[in-house]
Amino acid sequence: MKSTKPISIRAVKREARSLYHGHFKTAIKINIVPIIFTILNVITTLMMMYTMIMSFRDLSQMASSASVTSDNDSAFQQVLNIVESVLSDAIKLIFIWTVNWALIEWYEKPKKLPTFKDAFQIFNRGNFLHTLLLTIVQSMLIFLWTLLFVVPGIVKLFSYSQTYFAYKVDIENGTRQGQLTDYIKVSRRVMAGRKWELFLLELSFIGWHLLGILTGGIAYIYVVPYLNATRVAYSRHLFTLAMSESGAA
């Protein structure tokens, strides 16, 4: 399923803007949860940065002696933090996936506007438990790769980025892969030789992200729907090319 034909960044962005043209209220409505998550993340990050800057004045007071008990508590707390981080990432993925699935359907039928309920289809179409397990597996794998250093984690983030689309294809066809990791394998195959291309696509939004940070997250009301629609447009091109080239072979 590996595809070699380049996908135009301008083209997928243009498709995203075309999809939303005259319907941006609908775009905001179906993207509302990712928008809220992103704004809260920006606010939290800015507050943490402020706290860190202020804490530099009191570094001399932060040193304290550690006992064996505190070491054990610290180790246990680290395990809890890892579990919390993986589950948190998995939950965020669930909401991103369900929005992207609504966008996939919108692209397929552009004249039929998605409803607010469509943005939560994971919860009302019997896919929640299976999707939760899949997002946990993906989040755990990315976390483990990140432990090897940041770069391998980022590479795998792009490599696994199409898992949601592979799973959506099966949902629409009423089929299932043998194992959860098979969807991740599909993503890895279609992204072979494509990770740099997707990185450039994400990098093209750097100005929008800076605007989002400078506005305290407010600009993400526009940026998140635009970014999600662009990612879905890219995935549609990617799988279309991969399947066509696979069939030709």
Rank of each mutant, 00 (worst) to 15 (best):
G153A: 04
L227T: 07
T98R: 06
I43A: 15
T4V: 14
I32G: 05
A249Q: 14
K13W: 03
I218K: 07
L80W: 09
W97M: 05
V83H: 08
L113W: 07
G153H: 05
L203V: 03
P152I: 00
L59H: 07
W196P: 00
K117E: 13
R14M: 11
A192I: 05
V68G: 07
E202W: 13
Y164H: 04
S244V: 12
W208K: 04
T51K: 12
F239G: 02
W106T: 01
G193I: 07
V86P: 05
I122W: 00
M191N: 12
M1H: 15
M49A: 13
I9C: 03
Q138H: 04
G217F: 02
E15S: 14
P152D: 03
I39R: 07
I30S: 01
T131W: 04
S70D: 14
L200R: 10
G153C: 05
K92A: 09
R17L: 14
V42C: 05
K112S: 13
M140S: 15
V190M: 00
I53V: 14
V79D: 05
H130M: 10
T175E: 12
G207E: 04
G126R: 06
D89Y: 09
G178L: 09
I218P: 01
F123R: 06
V151P: 06
G217S: 08
D58C: 05
F199W: 11
L103F: 04
A192F: 10
L157P: 00
I9P: 01
S235C: 09
E197H: 10
L200C: 11
I91F: 05
L40V: 13
S3K: 09
E245R: 04
V12G: 03
T230P: 04
W145K: 05
S85P: 02
G153E: 03
L132G: 00
V155L: 14
N100E: 14
A233D: 04
K185M: 10
V33R: 06
L103S: 02
A119Q: 06
P225R: 02
S8N: 10
E245G: 07
S235W: 03
D170R: 00
R176F: 06
Q121A: 08
I184H: 04
T98K: 02
Q77T: 11
L214A: 15
V68I: 14
I39F: 05
S70Q: 15
V186G: 01
T51R: 14
K156T: 03
T181P: 01
N124K: 13
L40K: 09
S204T: 00
T44M: 12
G216I: 06
Q121C: 08
